[in-house]
Simulated scan of single mutants.
Amino acid sequence: MSCILIAEDERRITAFIDKGLRKYGFSTAIATDGEQAVLMAQSDKFDLLLLDLGLLVKDGWTVLAELRQQGKQLPIIIVTARDDVAEKKVGLQYEANDYLTKPFRFQDLLARVHNHLGSGLMK
Rank of each mutant, 00 (worst) to 15 (best):
G25R: 10
G25H: 06
G25D: 07
S27R: 13
S27M: 08
T28H: 08
A29K: 11
A29F: 00
I30M: 05
I30Q: 10
I30K: 02
I30P: 00
A31H: 00
A31K: 01
A31Y: 01
T32R: 14
D33K: 01
D33I: 02
D33L: 03
D33C: 06
G34W: 03
G34Q: 04
E35M: 01
Q36C: 04
Q36D: 13
A37L: 02
V38H: 02
V38W: 02
L39W: 03
L39N: 13
M40F: 10
M40E: 13
M40S: 07
A41P: 11
Q42I: 00
Q42T: 04
Q42F: 05
Q42E: 15
Q42H: 08
S43W: 12
D44A: 14
D44F: 08
K45F: 11
F46T: 09
F46M: 11
D47W: 07
L48T: 10
L48V: 10
L49K: 06
L50E: 14
L50N: 13
L51G: 07
L51F: 06
D52A: 10
D52G: 10
L53R: 13
G54P: 02
G54R: 13
L55H: 12
L55T: 09
L55Q: 13
L56I: 00
L56V: 08
L56E: 15
L56G: 15
V57A: 11
D59N: 15
D59Q: 13
G60S: 06
G60D: 05
G60Y: 04
W61A: 04
W61N: 05
W61Y: 15
T62L: 08
T62G: 09
V63D: 02
V63Y: 03
V63W: 03
L64A: 05
L64I: 05
R68I: 03
R68H: 04
Q69Y: 04
Q69M: 07
K72V: 06
K72C: 12
K72P: 02
Q73L: 10
L74T: 06
P75M: 09
P75C: 12
I76V: 15
I77P: 06
I78P: 06
I78K: 02
